[in-house]
């Protein structure tokens, strides 16, 4: 039996607002053992009366020594996400345990083509894969399809714009569901088979597909990929929850 994954105290070192409702947290975690792209952590909040609650958050970047990065989408009325995006401040402690999950991961040693499909905050673990690829100077062919409501809802916008140019072998497509920026060629609308065919890989290329986002989004995209002929065994999914988040 392996060693228990211990709770560690993390402190907020820096933060960045990604959108009006999403915040990236840079946390210092003494003793952090390192992690793979796609893994997540459990976060535990405890109040003065001893009541505590836990949620899972994906690691958004490869570890930088003892510093890890999470991006949290504020869910209206959400117990933990509202705290982490609105109240949690520089120097404050939280408890964190991880890394967790050994299935929804991408290893930089892999060379097979990869299709990443993100809905909303589902971009977080997929961004970790894009960043791990860049860090390892991997040339594995990557395509990222990122579905967001509108340009204002996009996380990591400037980095993704730069990556699309600088990271050779990485294609980035943003699909807007409600409103597209001026000049966009695709009408706003939910992601469908035509998008996955056009901006993804043909099934004959045998890509590994990582799909992450709200449950309904993941169900739909994974089923559509199967319908297009992708082998279900090459489709890995991570479902974040009911609607958004």
């Amino acid at each position: 039996m392996s060693a228990r994954i211990e709770w560690r105290v993390a402190t907020l070192a820096e933060f960045r607002n990604e959108t009006a409702t999403a915040r990236t947290l840079l946390l210092d975690v003494p003793g952090w053992p390192g992690h793979l792209a796609g893994q997540h952590v459990d976060v535990r909040l405890t109040d003065a009366d001893g009541y505590s609650t836990q949620r899972s958050y994906s690691l958004g970047a490869p570890a930088d020594g003892e510093r890890v990065e999470l991006t949290v989408q504020k869910v209206p009325g959400g117990e933990v996400s509202e705290y982490l995006t609105d109240v949690y401040s520089i120097g404050d402690p939280i408890e964190l345990r991880g890394p967790v999950g050994g299935w929804f991961v991408w290893h930089p040693s892999r060379t097979a083509p990869v299709l990443l499909v993100a809905g909303g905050s589902g971009i977080v673990p997929l961004m970790a894969m894009v960043r791990a690829r860049r860090q390892a100077r991997s040339r594995a062919p990557f395509r990222l399809i990122y579905s967001v409501r509108s340009p204002a809802d996009q996380y990591f916008s400037s980095e993704l714009r730069r990556s699309a140019v600088d990271d050779s072998g990485l294609d980035v497509t943003t699909v807007y569901t409600r409103s597209a920026p001026p000049g966009a060629t695709r009408e706003p609308g939910r992601i469908g088979g035509a998008d996955l065919e056009r901006y993804g890989w043909p099934p004959q290329f045998e890509p590994t597909c990582f799909v992450c986002g709200p449950t309904g989004f993941v169900e739909k995209v994974a089923n559509t990929l199967v319908g297009l002929g992708h082998d279900p065994r090459r489709i890995r999914t991570e479902r974040f929850g009911p609607t958004g988040g």
């Binding site: 505590s52 299935w103 999914t237």
Partner: peptide, 18 residues
């Protein structure tokens, strides 16, 4: 310990729904 109540029925699966 560590659980919270939900009225929804979330889904955890490693891949597509067969």
């Amino acid at each position: 310990p560590g659980q919270y109540l939900t009225e929804d029925f979330p889904v955890l699966s490693a891949g597509p729904t067969p």
